[in-house]
């Protein structure tokens, strides 16, 4: 219950905070929840991703799994971002995926399967974006498989532009929404 309250409060604070912590890709991407205190914006490691879809997914999930996901987001980040109408992984995305692969390998016993979601910004048609989201998810999957993650463990799913993590209609929102999210199961 505590979590929920934090989630709603934080979504506004996050917007102001994300540019002020240089060097932390996760923050810039809006994966962490930040709180505003007198000491400025602080990372609140106990809270889940501010992604409403991640938080919804965790509703009712077993606590070990929720802990695993929290751990995953804190240590590796759970997503990579893409350029406009692109499914290629830039250097930053590749680095994030290496962190993700490292975490998964280290926690092999805890990770039963992996779902990679592909998402798009709203600047495209519904059907084209469903196809593009599929390409993004698969692009991330192939990279992880190249790093030694078992392909049989990974499912992909495209949501097209249906699940924007940032509901605004700005360049920065579109950037945040063009993503592949790695979900551990």
């Amino acid at each position: 219950m505590m979590k929920k309250a934090l989630l709603t409060v934080s979504s506004v604070a996050l917007l102001a905070a994300c540019s002020s912590v240089p060097g932390n890709g996760d923050l810039a991407q809006g994966t962490y929840v930040t709180g505003t205190t007198t000491s400025g914006s602080v990372l609140m490691p106990d809270t889940l991703s501010q992604d409403p879809f991640v938080s919804e997914m965790n509703d009712g999930a077993p606590s070990e799994l929720v802990d695993l996901r929290k751990d995953f987001i804190r240590r590796a980040g759970d997503r990579v971002h893409f350029g406009f109408d692109s499914a290629s992984l830039d250097a930053e995305a590749q680095e994030s995926l290496r962190d993700i692969a490292k975490f998964i390998k280290k926690n092999e016993g805890r990770v039963k399967s992996i779902t990679i979601e592909g998402h798009c910004d709203e600047r495209g048609t519904r059907e084209y974006n469903l196809a593009l989201g599929d390409r993004r998810a698969v692009s991330a999957k192939k990279y992880l498989v190249g790093l030694g993650i078992d392909a049989a463990k990974i499912n992909t799913i495209s949501y097209g532009k249906e699940r924007p993590v940032d509901p605004r209609h700005t360049d920065s929102a579109w950037q945040r929404n063009r993503r592949a999210v790695v979900v551990l199961n």
Binding site: A87, E127, L130, A131, D134, R135, A137, V138, S139, K141, K142, T156, S158
Partner: peptide, 28 residues
């Protein structure tokens, strides 16, 4: 397997055109 999207009936109603990724993933 994969993405199933963009359905459209043929004019005679006997077929459906659609987008699938099947085994060739990442390739709608």
């Amino acid at each position: 397997e994969g993405l199933n999207s963009s359905p459209q009936f043929s004019p005679d109603g006997e077929s459906v055109a659609m987008t699938l990724t099947m085994g060739h993933e990442g390739n709608p």
